[in-house]
Structure formats: structure tokens, C-alpha cells
């Protein structure tokens, strides 16, 4: 057989006539609409919650470095064993690092290193890393130059500690060719960085004098003209003025 179009129409119409129950169609459609609204509301709620959590974390993250005196969730103020102000910044590091950094105390005066070769030529491992292991946390002791002023300290953890360590290591290894006019304000502070690794191992202390002619050294490696990273300059500066 070779069907004509009328045969095809007749074949397609055969068996038609079953009616739909409008009520069952309507109730199923209503149920689907309800489910769709619930889904949309759930998705919207989830987006709002995630946005709120994200925003809250962002604020919490910004608070320590943006407004350190406000005291963020990870900041606490308590007298250190040496009587100086101690504040905590950054996310919590590893437990060994936390334990190790909590035992560190600032010396009464910053240590003075006799750097081999004067440190100005990059010889005698002068360009080696200031911190020989990744830094997990550090206590920063800040010594004002004014006579009789007490040292202050701040504990940095996680990314904050790593950021400061990196900025120290990336400072110039030589003063050669560097212009430091006398008009530039000279630094009035000395920093001592007491760092620990993630395993809680104490690293060699680093003494730093920020500023154009300032020198940072652990007794072997030397850097010059260090300045704190922008994100931490307020924290270190605010701590220093306490």
C-alpha cells in the first residue's frame, strides 16, 4: 500500500476522543507551580545567605588591617609577658606555630648584628633568604627610638605573617645606586621579627630598620630600604604608636 494524504489523516485520527479531566490537569499544574515557587524561593534564599556570609567574611577579613584599633574577630589585646601591648592579626595558623609564637618574648632592646663584609656587597650569603623556611606566624617587636619608650609587639599569623616575611626578603640586597636624599624622613623605629614555621620551629630573628637607608638582617642575609607591605603598614604603625 502507498498511503495517500487522506489515508494518513485518517490513520492519525483513528483512536482519538479520550478526553482529559480538566480538574486533574489543573491540580497537577497548581502543584507544579507551587513546587517551582518553592524552588525559586529556596534558590534565592541560598544566594542571599551565601552573599551575606561572603560579605561578613569580607568585612571580618578587612577589619584587622583596615582598622586595627577596632579589634576584629581575630584580634585580642592583652599585656605580653614583657609588659608591652600584644595584638593578634590574621587567620589562625597551625597549632604548633600558634604554640611556638605564644612563647616568644621581645628582648628589651633590639639586637645588633655585625654583618660580615658590612652586608653591602651581596657577599657572604648576604643575598640569601632572611627566613630559611616558610613563615607561619611571627611576633613583631617594635622599638621606638625615643629614650625610655617601651617596645610594643604584634603577632601576625598566616597570610599577614607571610606577607611581611616576603616583603623583607624581596627588599633590595644592596644600597648601590640607591639615592637616599637627606630630605627624606628617616625612620624612627626598629623592628625585630621573631618568626616560626608551620611546625613550630623558631627561625632566625630578623632585625629591620625601615626607610631608604634602613638595613634588615638576620646576621647573615641583608636587605635594604625595606618598608612594610601596604596592607600591614597601618597595623605596624598603629601598634608602634601605642
Amino acid at each position: 500500500m502507498s498511503p495517500s494524504e487522506s489515508d494518513l489523516r485518517a490513520a492519525l485520527r483513528a483512536g482519538e476522543g479520550d478526553a482529559l479531566d480538566p480538574e486533574s490537569v489543573l491540580s497537577a499544574a497548581r502543584a507544579a507551580r507551587h513546587q517551582r515557587r518553592v524552588r525559586i524561593a529556596s534558590a534565592t534564599g541560598a544566594v542571599v545567605v551565601v552573599a551575606a556570609i561572603g560579605g561578613g567574611l569580607g568585612v571580618a577579613d578587612l577589619r584587622p588591617s583596615g582598622n586595627p584599633t577596632a579589634g576584629g574577630p581575630s584580634a585580642s589585646n592583652s599585656p605580653s609577658p614583657s609588659g608591652s601591648q600584644r595584638m593578634l592579626y590574621g587567620s589562625r595558623g597551625s597549632a604548633p606555630a600558634q604554640d611556638a609564637v605564644s612563647t616568644l618574648t621581645c628582648p628589651a632592646t633590639p639586637p645588633t648584628y655585625a654583618v660580615p663584609g658590612g652586608g653591602g656587597t651581596g657577599q657572604f650569603d648576604g643575598s640569601a633568604a632572611l627566613f630559611d623556611q616558610p613563615v607561619a606566624a611571627m611576633k613583631v617587636c617594635i622599638y621606638p627610638s625615643a629614650a625610655g619608650a617601651h617596645p610594643r609587639s604584634v603577632v601576625l599569623r598566616g597570610a599577614d605573617a607571610q606577607g611581611v616575611a616576603t616583603s623583607l626578603d624581596e627588599a633590595p640586597t644592596s644600597l648601590r645606586g640607591r639615592m637616599c636624599p637627606d630630605l627624606m624622613p628617616q625612620n624612627q623605629l626598629t623592628f625585630e621579627f621573631l618568626a616560626v614555621s608551620a611546625a613550630g620551629e623558631k627561625l632566625r630573628p630578623v632585625t629591620a630598620e625601615p626607610g631608604c637607608r634602613g638595613r634588615s638582617t638576620n646576621g647573615t642575609a641583608v636587605r635594604f630600604s625595606w618598608s612594610p607591605p601596604a596592607s600591614m603598614s597601618d597595623v605596624l604603625g598603629a601598634t608602634a604608636t601605642h
Binding site: 479520550d18 478526553a19 482529559l20 480538566p22 480538574e23 489543573l26
Partner: peptide
């Protein structure tokens, strides 16, 4: 408008159902 929708299903439901089966 549920009443209008219901009327539409009554009028066209059978045709649409058969088309769906095809």
C-alpha cells in the same frame, strides 16, 4: 484564570492528548 484554563482544557484537551500520543 483557572476557569478560563479549565474551559480551554475541556475544549482542546482531547486533541492535544491524541497529538501527544502520536
Amino acid at each position: 484564570d483557572d476557569a478560563a484554563f479549565r474551559a480551554f482544557v475541556e475544549a482542546n484537551g482531547a486533541t492535544l492528548l491524541h497529538a501527544a500520543r502520536l
